[in-house]
């Protein structure tokens, strides 16, 4: 086989692989959409309180929020995204939130979760925020001592639960 044919074959192989990934992901979106609450779109992050769906965090709503960033102390990588404080202000009247109100951020695929108080979230210095991961999912990161290293971060967050203490 000539070199030219080999190169064409390689380019074709790359195109096929990309198409297969996008096709399978689209299929997965359809399957997930069937299983989820009808008011949620694939990719949305639901916010529940006492089992009731209060809001669905989606990318369109966050587009006009200011992005913030900080460099994590563990690996020196820049974490960039949206403060949870600003996200909650987008969906709720946060002045009614008590400092002790708990927010549980969880990831079903990682089997991880963390509870943060509104007091912790509302302090901008704590940088409690969603960082956009490489594959487009959200990762909860912060400067808080209990959430400042990779093992403590909650990757692939897919649910937020608000709990009255």
């Amino acid at each position: 086989m000539s070199q030219k044919k080999r190169i064409i074959l390689a380019v074709g192989l790359i195109i096929v692989l990309v198409a297969v990934v996008l096709g399978l992901e689209s299929l997965r979106a359809k399957i997930i959409a069937k299983d989820r609450d009808v008011s949620l779109n694939p990719g949305d992050i639901p916010v529940y309180k006492d089992g009731e769906l209060l809001a669905a965090v989606n990318s369109e709503d966050l587009a006009d929020l200011q992005m913030v960033q900080f460099t994590d102390a563990e690996q020196g990588k820049v974490q960039e995204g949206w403060l949870i404080l600003n996200i909650m202000e987008k969906y709720f009247e946060t002045r009614h939130f008590s400092d002790s109100l708990q927010f549980v951020f969880s990831s079903s695929s990682r089997n991880k979760s963390i509870a943060l108080s509104w007091e912790e979230i509302a302090e901008p210095e704590n940088m409690v925020m969603f960082d956009l991961s490489g594959r487009g999912t959200l990762k909860l990161v912060s400067k808080l001592e209990k959430l400042d290293v990779r093992d403590e971060w909650v990757q692939d967050v897919d649910r937020i639960e608000i709990i009255e203490p």
Binding site: V18, V21, L22, E25, R28, A29, I32, P42, G43, I45, N58, S59, S107, S108, S109, L132, G134, R135, G136, T137, L138, D156, V157, D158
Partner: peptide
């Protein structure tokens, strides 16, 4: 893992 939060997040990644 959840689907990409950002529309076309996977395509951007690819």
């Amino acid at each position: 893992a959840p689907l990409g939060f950002v529309a076309l997040g996977l395509a951007r990644s690819i």
